[in-house]
């Protein structure tokens, strides 16, 4: 099938009166489609994905060794400071960032806003982040991600949330952390919790799986699949509050396969140096001597704010469920 036809046929989330939503027409089975989406996520292993707001920042990120860039209107620290409704970045901004780099371009859509996601898909971004950093468009429902050809990444704080997002079609999971703070503690908490809950699920007996599914509020078939395979069907990256090379090494050591860095780079003193240093630390996070070099080379980190200074109703991680 020609690309254009595929894109046009991809009107998926429209529901014809009384009918079922139609899946995008594709020569691929759902399994093969999912494999290709997860495949791109696997190719990002050991890399750093950087938030950028301009073509110039995108080029700095690519030159520093970023594995992908995330196009957005404002970095999370500014969203936090300035308030207002945070939406998908403007089309002009996304296109200028896409054209500036050869690495994959990701972009954020609001939780539940499948029409923003349609715009991003039509622009052929490489990954869509259905992100709690933006103001949610739907407080009850996330996007049905199986209806899209572009893969999605979603945030999660615990295993139940991980599995709910995968069941909706997410091809990549990241911790939510607490974006825009420069405080890595929430990302650490989410990584540890997800791994602890995975351990508990692996240790469960077969007859306990239904209770596990109930406890996790996750689909039984997916719970059973993870139990059988002993691991998640998609990679898990870290995001939210990573600001230094050591922060990146910390989350990698705790089992993250790659790192998203939001405000941490372009809110630091010297973004190009900080970006390169975080890339270096992520690639060889097990070696203290490399971390010393990377720490020397990084610019001064963003000042940030401790998570306990964030009012509960100003927390981004509680958006979505």
């Amino acid at each position: 099938m020609a690309k254009d036809d595929a894109v046009k046929a991809n009107g998926g989330s429209e529901t014809v009166a009384g009918g079922e939503p139609t899946r995008f027409s594709s020569a691929l089975t759902p399994e093969a489609d999912f494999e290709i989406k997860v495949g791109l996520a696997r190719m990002l292993q050991g890399g750093v994905i950087m938030d950028v707001t301009t073509a110039e920042e995108a080029r700095i990120a690519e030159d520093a060794g970023a594995v992908a860039v995330m196009a957005l209107e404002r970095v999370p620290a500014d969203i936090r400071k300035e308030g207002g409704v945070a939406r998908m970045a403007s089309v002009e901004r996304i296109v200028s960032i896409q054209e500036a780099v050869t690495i994959p371009t990701m972009a954020k859509a609001r939780i539940g806003h499948f029409q923003e996601a349609r715009v991003l898909e039509e622009l052929a971004v490489d990954f869509i982040d259905e992100s709690e950093v933006l103001t949610p468009a739907d407080n009850e429902h996330h996007i049905d991600k199986t209806l899209f050809r572009v893969p999605f990444v979603c945030g999660a704080r615990n295993l139940g949330e991980v599995l709910r997002r995968i069941s909706e079609g997410a091809a990549l999971i990241r911790t939510k952390g607490e974006a825009g703070t420069g405080d890595v503690s929430e990302a650490v908490r989410h990584l540890r919790l997800i791994h602890r809950e995975l351990g508990a699920l692996r240790a469960a007996r077969r007859e306990e799986l239904l209770a596990q599914a109930k406890h996790l509020s996750a689909p039984f078939d997916l719970v059973r699949q993870v139990w059988e395979q002993g691991k998640l069907p998609v990679p898990n990256f870290a995001a939210g509050g990573v600001a230094t090379p050591s922060d990146a090494a910390l989350v990698m050591s705790l089992g993250a396969e790659s790192v998203f860095v939001g405000s941490g780079i372009f809110k630091s003193d010297d973004p190009a140096r900080t970006a390169a240093a975080i890339v270096k630390a992520t690639a060889r996070y097990q070696e203290p001597s490399i971390l010393v070099e990377a720490s020397r080379e990084a610019g001064a980190a963003m000042k940030g704010m401790a998570v306990d200074q964030v009012a509960p109703d100003a927390q981004l991680q509680t958006r979505g469920w």
Binding site: L28, A124, D126, F127
Partner: peptide
């Protein structure tokens, strides 16, 4: 990136005559 962006990624079963097998080949960007 000669095929385009991620939306143009694909997989299909192809013969690998040099190896005498068929394989499901996944092409990603």
């Amino acid at each position: 990136n000669a095929y385009g962006r991620q939306i143009d990624s694909f997989s299909r079963v192809l013969p690998l005559p040099g190896l005498g097998i068929e394989l499901r080949c996944v092409f990603i960007r």
